[in-house]
């Protein structure tokens, strides 16, 4: 099995931070705000591995640090400490020591990101096809016809009617916007895809169709994915392994069915017990 990503001791503190930050926050302290200096410990000591074609779930409530961790890996946020190694095509990239240009190079070509809020992932002033074109053009594809063809087939794959390729995303439904985001994220066939609460706020039937699409893609191109969600149903269907986070810490990790049926930590037990 090929390793795609190895994250070690990832931490992210918002604020100036102090020596007590990590000791005085976390699930035991029942807070992620440091009582001595007021900094927010959004994530601390997050470690995990990800293999080719694997889907890893990160589960937790709002403010648990699940999105922060993913944003650090996608370079949307700068981590306070920790390391992450990305293995790609026989090469290794130490993500947090790369310069900004190298990071953007990776995130625009080798990573994909689908945000909960389509406004973050899509440019609403340009057409659906144009959004996909942008990512392709970053990868130095400069043939208009080829770009058009690729954008069209990606939209079709994401079950967006190709007749709407030239429509602006704001004229699309929420589910359709997520599909365009997914098509855009996949346009470079990235080996690593981040999905941040992608089905939150969508109708159940639309959710199912999006999950379906994600699973199909995972099987087709063996993209490794990190799925961030607070929805246990999504985790159960998608993820082989799951991390549970609370107050910035990973409090439990394991095979997804084990985490859901035999949760070890009090918080996970409560979370699972209160699921609808």
């Amino acid at each position: 099995m090929d390793k795609v990503l190895e994250v070690k001791n990832l931490s992210k503190v918002y604020g100036k931070g102090c020596a007590d930050c990590f000791g005085l926050t976390g699930p035991q302290a029942d807070t992620n705000i440091c009582p001595s200096c007021g900094s927010v410990v959004a994530a601390h000591d997050v470690s995990f591995d990800l293999y080719k074609g694997e889907i890893l779930g990160i589960m937790g409530e709002s403010g648990s640090g699940k999105s922060t961790s993913v944003k650090c890996l996608f370079f949307d946020e700068e981590p306070t400490s920790g390391s992450a190694v990305f293995y790609d095509d026989g090469k290794q990239y130490n993500l947090f020591t790369l310069n900004a240009a190298q990071q953007r190079q990776l995130s625009s070509r080798r990573f994909g990101m689908v945000y909960q809020n389509p406004y973050l992932g899509l440019n609403f002033d340009i057409s659906a096809g144009g959004n996909i074109a942008e990512r392709l053009l970053m990868s130095s594809i400069s043939h208009f016809g080829a770009i058009r063809e690729r954008a069209s087939s990606l939209l079709q794959r994401a079950e967006v009617p190709t007749a709407r390729i030239d429509a602006l995303p704001k004229t699309f439904s929420g589910g359709m916007q997520q599909r365009v985001q997914i098509a855009k994220a996949l346009s470079t066939y990235p080996p690593l895809l981040f999905l941040d609460e992608v089905t939150t706020g969508l109708d159940l039937s639309v959710q199912a169709a999006i999950l379906d699409l994600i699973m199909e893609i995972q099987q087709e191109i063996e993209t490794a994915m990190i799925v961030v969600t607070h929805d246990l149903g999504v985790i159960r269907l998608l993820a082989g392994r799951t991390l549970v986070m609370k107050y910035g810490r990973v409090i439990e990790s394991g095979l997804t069915d084990q985490v859901l049926e035999d949760p070890q930590h009090a918080y996970t037990q409560r979370l699972v017990a209160s699921a609808l």
Partner: peptide
């Protein structure tokens, strides 16, 4: 990275 300028050209072409 001039991809967004090229996107502008792309948008012109489709419109």
């Amino acid at each position: 990275d001039y991809s967004r300028l090229l996107v502008k050209l792309y948008e012109d072409l489709i419109k």
